[in-house]
Design a protein around this nucleic acid. Sequence first.
DNA 1: AATGTACGCAACCGCTCGAAA
DNA 2: TTTTCGAGCGGTTGCGTACAT
Length: 265
Amino acid sequence: MNTLCTSLGVRKGSWTEEEDFLLKKCIHKYGEGKWHLVPARAGLNRCRKSCRLRWLNYLRPHIKRGDFEPDEVDLILRLHKLLGNRWALIAGRLPGRTANDVKNYWNTHFQKKLNTVAPPPPPYRQKINNKCGEISKNEIIRPQPRNFSRAKKNISHWCNNKSMITNTLDKDDELCKEIVVNICDKTTGRETTLSSIDDDGVKWWTSLLENCNEIEEEEAITNYEKTPTTLLHKGYNGEGNSMEQGQNDDWDEFSVDIDLWNLLN
DNA sequence: AATGTACGCAACCGCTCGAAA
DNA sequence: TTTTCGAGCGGTTGCGTACAT
């Protein structure tokens, strides 16, 4: 047993079955979130980060273990090409897989191969200078925090009243294309055109993907808090696959995932 | 059988971001 | 507007195990 402790007396190292049990019990009772309260609530002598990590990477229901399927590997490769080391985002597209799993898999199976070619700097930290240059290993589109600000909490309402009627993909340049989306307000009948490239040269749709995940997770977590056992059986794992389980129909018509898929193909 | 090495996974650390005060 | 704090993320480390010698 690992008995390493910090100066504050917080336990570190491998988790025991008893600790796992206490953490699970706590999450089932109070739901995910408020991690700073979890150690006290669960009666664990662990820091909140440790608790969060243990839950996300190991204890959460429906976490898929074992070898990655060939199609999962393919998706990882494609998404990594597009997003860089954004493991959380990549994992969000792989139901049941955690960011840590994906990262470990990548480091184990691909990192060494890449290093033999050229050691790339952390691509997601680099600014994209050219709007329409070819995307290379070092020119990764970094999703920017462009959320729907105040409207975020009412996003479902927004989605209910607006439908995306077209999205045009430029066939010439795969990754630097401008995506034009016409949004029609069902209530007024007014159409608004959004471009994928804004003033900063940032593709808003990439951050939109993040927003989708956040909202899915927020809603799922809220629901989870209300009826944990029901959702446990329904299969929510908080990893962005809640839609697969038939939840959150508001997003079914939202075609951003399709766009991403198109880009990857 | 014993020892050394490589590999994979779980966990920790430090940083950034965003929300709240 | 600034400061503080919690949450989340990616990089890195360390341990256990499998395999080779």
